[in-house]
Design a protein around this nucleic acid. Structure first.
Length: 255
DNA sequence: ATGGCGACCGGAGGTCGA
C-alpha cells in the first residue's frame, strides 16, 4: 500500500501533473494541499476516470486539501473540532482501516507576525485533536505540508535559516509534540541521500542548486511502524514544465 | 539568499507562499 502527499500549489494549474503522476505511480492514497479551489471546481470526474475516489475541502485562492484514494474513503471529517477556522487546512478519512489525516499546516510568514501565532495555535489544536484521533484509530497516518523543517539536516543552509519561520525552535518543538503522541517521521526510518528536500524556492534557481527544505512529511502511529517498507521523495514532478514548488513524498506500507 | 518566481484576483500591481 502506497501513501503519498503533495502540495500542488493550485490544482487548477497542476491537475495534469497529478493525473500523470497517479497514473504512473499508482498510489493507493494521495493527500493534496493548496488546491486553491472551491469544492464546486474540484475535478472529481477526471479523477474517477483514472480510478480515484476523492474528498475535498477547499476555498478560492488559498489553502484547500483533498484525499484521493483507489479504495473507499470512510468517515470523512473536515477541519479541527473545537478550532474555529475559516481556512480549509485539514481533511481526514479512513482507508482500509488506517485513519488518513491530510494537513496543510500554516506557513507562519515570519516569527514576528500574527500568522506565526496562528500557526502555533493551529499546531496546538491539531495535537490535542490527534490525541483523541489516535485513541479512536490506533492506525493513523498524518500526511501533509507541515511547513516545518524538523532538523538542521532538513535545511540546505541552517545558518542562513537560523531562527526563521519554518525552522524556529517553537515550530520544531511543536513538531516534536506530534512525535510525542507516538507518531514517527517515516522518511527517517530509512537511509536517505544527504540534502533531501521536498520544497525548493521558485526563485534563484533553487531546485537546480538544491537550495531546499524538507517540510512535507508522513508521520505514522506506532502500530503502523512494522508495516513501513520504504519512503522516498520523488523529484521528477519538480522537473516538469510549470511545476509545483513542492514535490511528492511517498511511504510504502506492506499490506 | 531576502531580490530574483509563480498563483491569484482583476484587469495593474499588490499579496501571499516558504
Amino acid at each position: 500500500m502506497k501513501l503519498a502527499t503533495w502540495n500542488v500549489n493550485s490544482l487548477n494549474v497542476r491537475l495534469p501533473h497529478v493525473l500523470d503522476w497517479c497514473t504512473a505511480n499508482q498510489p493507493d492514497v494521495l493527500c493534496l494541499q493548496e488546491t486553491k479551489q472551491e469544492d464546486s471546481k474540484f475535478p472529481y470526474e477526471a479523477l474517477t476516470a483514472i480510478g480515484y475516489n476523492a474528498i475535498h475541502s477547499g476555498q478560492k485562492t488559498y489553502n484547500g486539501v483533498a484525499i484521493l484514494s483507489r479504495h473507499v474513503l470512510e468517515h470523512p471529517s473536515y477541519g479541527i473540532p473545537d478550532f474555529a477556522d475559516e481556512q480549509k487546512r485539514l481533511i481526514a478519512a479512513t482507508v482500509k482501516g488506517i485513519r488518513i489525516v491530510c494537513a496543510y499546516i500554516p506557513n507562519g510568514q515570519s516569527v514576528d507576525s500574527d500568522k506565526y501565532q496562528y500557526k502555533l495555535n493551529w499546531l496546538a489544536s491539531l495535537t490535542t485533536h490527534l490525541q483523541a484521533e489516535l485513541a479512536a484509530h490506533p492506525k493513523l497516518a498524518l500526511l501533509g505540508d507541515y511547513n516545518i523543517a524538523p532538523e538542521d539536516r532538513d535545511v540546505h543552509d541552517p545558518a542562513a535559516w537560523l531562527g526563521q519561520v519554518l525552522v524556529s525552535e517553537p515550530e520544531r518543538t511543536a513538531f516534536q509534540g506530534l512525535v510525542g503522541l507516538g507518531l514517527h517521521d517515516t522518511f527517517r526510518l530509512f537511509e536517505q541521500p544527504e540534502a533531501s528536500f521536498s520544497w525548493w524556492d521558485y526563485r534563484m534557481a533553487g531546485f537546480r542548486r538544491n537550495l531546499g527544505l524538507r517540510i512535507d512529511h508522513i508521520l505514522v502511529s506506532t502500530p503502523l511502524l512494522a508495516a513501513c517498507k520504504a519512503s522516498w521523495i520523488d523529484k521528477a514532478p519538480r522537473k516538469l514544465e510549470r511545476p509545483s514548488d513542492h514535490t511528492p513524498v511517498v511511504l510504502e506500507l506492506s499490506e
